[in-house]
Write a protein that binds this DNA or RNA. Structure first.
Length: 885
DNA sequence: CTCTTCACG
DNA sequence: ACGTACGTGAAGAGC
């Protein structure tokens, strides 16, 4: 016999929220309502063993009831933000548990449930409805039992028609009449004022229905007669509002509510994600998915074969079955990382190969295997492995699934993207953190072979267990193309670019350093003289002492620890004292010298004479890359003094050129596309100067009337729009009052209404889903979007506005890189892609390919992704990066 | 190890 | 009333 349980999702989570103490997980997200809901759900499952189950949610602000009565649910307290943020969590969890959920735009949960119980009645199927809302009693029937949740969510009372008769001496249908007369403050249903449960029951026992009470009001007397007659209409309307609509156009059927018990694969991980450890234990759930053999003994001994030269042949024999690899490296910079050893895992065996064995002549078959691009490799951080092996002259190819990359795509804001962190997040059997095995910093020490090989083998096992879980989650999020067609191919391309490196003219760089040194020396002396004392100019503390105590300059801004001396403050102080200008100049030069001249010199490889940056693909929350050792994404350009540094970046072969191409206004073009704003699109379709055009529209003037100042303001507003505008931020940037800034923004939105609509919609979407997405389905979760703390919430709202823009721009240039790599191979060009700087790609190009590349690069970049506005890429080239402007 | 500052998109 | 513009990495000071 089928047993169907229908749950009023909104009602139960609401009750749970107020009943449970505020419980938060490690990331500060409140989870108490989800927890309360889940405990109740599990109890229902245990007690009733349902074959079908469904949780219904309200959907859409306006329901059909508002058509009858605008104030329906008016005056109701807004859902507390700490609760609304838990809806997405609950929905995710239900998915993981294998419990179906319905929501239908314009209808409330009651209506969905009412419709299903009607269908069940017609078919003679048993149903149980779970809610804390007394209205639900109207659904009770021979087949339908109402499980009334009481005292938070701890007690349940079961009502059939008999129990309702006992309790109220009414039929289920009369529950509606009861509410028609009583009203309901929480839904703002008026009823008849002054009539409570007692009176309403008395009237119904006598007359049977609201209609009868109204029709025969003559039989009443005194005050009661007056009240009924005066509020007859209200009573009729109230009854109508209280009536659950039982004809929702449902596409789902009973089959969509099948419940086969908790989904064994995903329930554990879903609960683990919310950190509901006690529930996992109580259910004795595996949290690892995968085979059940490993379940009960997480610390089971594993037997790793330690491969010496004698055992290499044995290993070569099973290479075909290897599914996972792990290469242990030491050092932050993978270009200089030490390789400790490699672990390989088949379905049922693990091998450890010390590095010297891997390097031995006898290991040639293993190295062939590593180098084959046709053999798929899976593991954690294959990009790093590729680089580390490369500098040991061991080629690596065939990266097919990178657990590190998958983890990043599934939650790019998670700070701990380590393998042990991911294993813990999915509740896999415990994997020790690398720090605990090796120690960190100066205390790093490789443990003995037994311990090392076991740890590395466990990493392989963890990766093996994570892969199906991650792949499933990527599939659920529609992120498989992003993962397999973009990020995975890109990681190989980045590794190629990094190995290639970019050549630096050391002599020129040193000469530049000498010039800076001379100027710095001169400035320092002059500053000491004016100050009348020598001090550490690099110390904001000591500098503050001189400026604000000794010279008594006005304090503009303070930091947590003392006086602020940043450039913004110094600019304001410049009129007061000559020393300030000199300090500003010193700062500029000192930065160039220490970070760029000295910093860059340190990073030049002794092997290649080039700098080999390391692009990190799993850092930026928006999907951008980041660059380290050295950072080649922040080489000076804005000021001429610094820009000169770009002259030292040169082609690595004589006669070649540096060619650079950058996207023009990519973020605003992306905004035009996703906001579908007619004016913004129009501007780009005609390839207008976007800041001038913005000024024309915002100030309502012709193109000739836009002066430099107007354009500057418009430009600032455009930046603000991309960042998620606030009047405060704009006022700071333009040095105007907040009021003026607010007026600017208003005027902007008046003109660019599509942009306003986008900003409103994306924030709403974020509040509803708990995340935002880019065009290529890259996600970013925003747990603070519903916070009650204004600052946290505002920050999340701006992030919701900015991330789809910045992130889609990142998607696009990544696509361009993949296409560009393919184009170079296809045409057998010798040109090489060297750098990516967010909206710019830098190549080195032989003389005879210049003409082709000048066409090809902008062509590929501008067609990386088709938007509703054209993408524009501008190309230039020269003998060094400075000339390519 | 954290704070401040400043370089880039 | 609240008080930040979005995203990064590196250097130096000082605890």
């Amino acid at each position: 016999m089928d047993k169907l349980i229908l749950i009023d999702g909104n009602n139960i989570i609401y009750r749970a929220f107020f009943a449970m103490p505020p419980l938060t997980n490690a990331s500060g997200q409140q989870t108490n309502a989800v927890y309360g809901f889940t405990t109740m759900l599990l109890r229902l499952i245990e007690e009733h063993k349902p074959t079908h189950m469904m949780v219904a949610f309200d959907a859409g602000k306006e329901t059909f009831r508002h058509a009858d009565y605008q104030d329906y649910k008016g005056g109701r307290q807004k859902t507390p933000p700490e609760l609304s943020g838990q809806f997405p969590l609950l929905k995710e969890l239900l998915k993981g548990l294998g419990v179906s959920q319905f929501e239908i735009g314009g209808y409330e949960a009651d209506d969905i449930i009412g419709t299903i119980t009607r269908q069940a009645d017609e078919a003679g199927r048993k149903v149980m409805v779970v809610s804390g809302d007394k209205d639900m009693l109207q659904l009770a029937s021979e087949n339908t039992t109402i499980a009334m949740v009481r005292k938070g969510v701890t007690e349940i009372e079961y009502y059939g028609p008999e129990q309702i008769k006992e309790r109220y001496d009414l039929t289920p249908e009369q529950i509606i009449d009861l509410k028609g007369l009583m009203g309901d403050a929480s839904d703002n249903i008026p009823g008849v004022p002054g009539v409570g449960e007692k009176t309403a029951l008395k009237l119904l026992h006598e007359f049977g229905s609201v209609e009868e009470v109204v029709a025969r009001s003559g039989e009443l007397k005194g005050k009661m007669k007056e009240k009924i007659e005066e509020h007859a209409e209200s009573a009729i309307l109230s009854k109508k509002l209280a009536t659950i609509f039982r004809e929702v156009p449902l596409e789902q059927t009973l089959d969509d509510m099948v419940f086969n018990g908790l989904n064994e694969e995903t329930a554990g991980p879903a609960l683990a994600k919310l950190e509901f450890k006690s529930l996992i234990e109580r259910l004795d759930l595996r949290t690892s998915g995968g085979g059940s053999e490993t379940e009960s003994e997480p610390e089971a001994q594993i037997d790793v074969t330690i491969v010496d030269e004698g055992k290499l042949a044995e290993l070569a024999g099973v290479l075909e079955q290897v599914s996972i690899l792990h290469v242990e490296t030491h050092g932050d910079n993978p270009h200089h990382a030490e390789v400790i050893g490699m672990a390989l895992a088949t379905e049922d065996r693990q091998f450890y190969i010390p590095f010297d064995v891997l390097k031995s002549e006898a290991a040639e078959p293993i190295r062939m295997w590593l180098a084959s691009s046709d053999i798929p490799k899976r593991g954690y951080d294959l990009h790093r492995i590729d680089l580390a092996l490369h500098w040991q002259d061991i080629p690596f190819a065939g990266a097919a699934f990178d657990v590190h990359l998958a983890g990043y795509l599934l939650d790019p804001t998670e700070a701990n993207q380590s393998l042990s962190g991911l294993a813990a997040k999915y509740g896999l059997s415990y994997l020790q953190a690398d720090e605990d095995v090796f120690g960190k910093g100066a205390k790093y020490k490789v443990p003995d072979t037994d311990k090392l090989s076991e740890h590395m083998a466990r990493k392989c096992l963890a990766a093996a267990q994570l892969i199906p879980l991650q792949e499933k989650e990527l599939a659920d999020n529609e992120m498989l193309p992003l993962f397999y067609d973009l990020e995975m191919p890109l990681s190989r391309i980045l590794a190629d670019m990094e190995k290639q490196g970019i050549a630096v003219n050391v002599e020129d760089l040193k000469e530049l350093g000498r010039e800076f040194e001379a100027q710095i020396e001169r400035l320092v002396q002059e500053i000491y003289e004016i100050a009348g004392t020598e001090f550490n100019l690099n110390s904001p503390k000591q500098l503050g002492e001189i400026l604000f105590v000794k010279l008594e300059l006005p304090v503009i801004k303070k930091t947590k620890t003392g006086y602020s001396t940043d450039a913004e403050v110094l600019e304001k102080l410049a009129p007061y004292h000559d020393i300030v200008r000199l300090i500003l100049q010193y700062r500029t030069l000192a930065k160039l010298q220490s970070t760029y001249v000295e910093g860059l010199l340190k990073e030049i490889s002794g092997k290649t004479g080039k700098v080999h940056t390391y692009y990190r693909q799993t850092i930026a929350a928006t999907g951008r890359l980041s660059s380290q050792y050295p950072n080649l994404q922040n080489i000076p350009i804005r000021l001429e003094e610094g820009r000169k540094l770009r002259k030292v970046f040169v082609p690595s072969e004589p006669g070649w050129s540096i060619l650079a191409a950058d996207y023009s206004q990519i973020e605003l073009r992306v905004l035009a596309h996703i906001s579908d704003d007619e004016r913004l699109k129009e501007a780009f379709l005609h390839d207008m100067d976007i800041h001038t055009k913005t000024a024309m529209d915002v100030f309502g003037v012709g193109v000739d009337e836009v002066d430099a100042n107007m354009r500057r303001s418009a430009k600032a507003v455009n930046f603000g729009i991309v960042y998620g505008i606030s009047d405060y931020g704009l006022s700071q940037n333009l040095n105007i009052t907040r009021k003026e800034a607010a007026a600017f923004i208003d005027q902007y939105f008046e003109v660019f209404q599509g942009v306003r609509r986008y900003m409103d919609e994306i924030v709403k979407e974020a509040k509803q889903n708990g995340y935002v997405k880019t065009l290529l389905e890259r996600r970013r979760y925003l747990p603070e979007i519903n916070a009650s703390n204004f600052n946290l919430r505002s920050f999340a709202e701006r992030t919701a506005m900015n991330t789809p823009i910045q992130g889609t721009a990142a998607d696009i240039i990544k696509l361009a890189m993949v296409h560009m790599d393919a184009a170079l191979q296809e045409r057998k060009l010798k040109s090489r892609m060297l750098l990516q700087v967010h909206d710019e790609l830098v190549f080195e190009v032989p003389e005879d390919e210049l003409e082709i590349m000048k066409e090809l690069v902008p062509e590929v970049m501008s067609h990386a992704l088709a938007l509703s506005v054209p993408l524009k890429s501008e190309v230039s080239y020269g003998t060094n990066w400075y000339e390519a402007k």
